[in-house]
Amino acid sequence: MRYELLITDLDGTLVDLGIDWDQLRERIRKTMGWSHPLKPLGPSIPVAAGGDREKIESAFKIVETAEMEAAMRAERDEKLILSLTRLRNLGLRIGLVTLQAINPALTALRRLGVLEFFDAFVTREISLSREEQLKIVMEKLMGVPERSIFVGDTEMDLESSRKVGCFFISVGKRVRGEFSAESFYQVPDIVEVLLNE
């Protein structure tokens, strides 16, 4: 199969930004006076807020502050730069989908030294649905599901890739795809195998 497009999630997949998501959920619940479990966090906020725009904005401000603090701790990653260089040299266009806000996402990518590798970004400002994010990034990069690979680290990522119809590579231990990598550094090796099948 000739794959043309690789799409990756950001935190937990491309890199671990060290955000304590459970602690962040607790902080939001406390501040907002909510009892909602807030899982997954981004899509749950509008539900917990009952659609109240002001409450949604307030909750996402708390999230974005934590995301920006984490992004500012990111450091240049030579192994990640090498991994993305290899993927680019395999002829792939590269997109990013994330439930983070645009500013922290771009800050993290810039500090990691990998911003220029990405041809398109879809952040939570555009959509809170991972399935929709994948469709949008494919549309932006003129890709089709059967020629696209999605790299993610959650059950939501796996389910979304199945619904959209793209090939899934899992990173980390939270979810297992047909092909699994310990970290993003192993993804180019898997992609090479797929391209040579």
Rank of each mutant, 00 (worst) to 15 (best):
R124G: 07
M68V: 09
V97K: 04
V193P: 05
S129Q: 10
D11H: 02
G143W: 07
E131G: 00
E116K: 13
C166T: 10
L99G: 10
T107K: 02
V164F: 03
A48I: 04
G51F: 10
L87H: 02
T154M: 09
P104H: 06
T65M: 01
V144E: 13
R111D: 01
A48S: 04
I56W: 08
F179S: 05
K79C: 13
I62K: 08
T65C: 02
K30P: 01
E131L: 02
A108G: 08
A71Y: 02
L141N: 09
K163I: 14
A71F: 03
F167K: 12
G113Y: 06
R130G: 00
L87I: 14
F150S: 03
L41K: 02
S161H: 06
R124M: 08
E69Q: 09
F60M: 14
L80H: 02
I81Q: 13
I81V: 15
V151W: 08
G42I: 02
V175M: 08
L38Q: 00
G50L: 13
I126L: 11
E155L: 15
I102D: 06
D22S: 14
W21H: 06
G113N: 02
P40G: 12
K173W: 12
T107W: 01
L99A: 08
K61T: 14
K61Y: 02
L106D: 05
D153Q: 14
M1W: 13
D22H: 14
R2Y: 11
R174D: 15
C166L: 15
E146W: 02
L112Q: 00
E116L: 10
F121V: 12
S170R: 07
I169A: 01
G165M: 10
D11N: 12
V137A: 10
R176I: 03
L158G: 02
A66R: 10
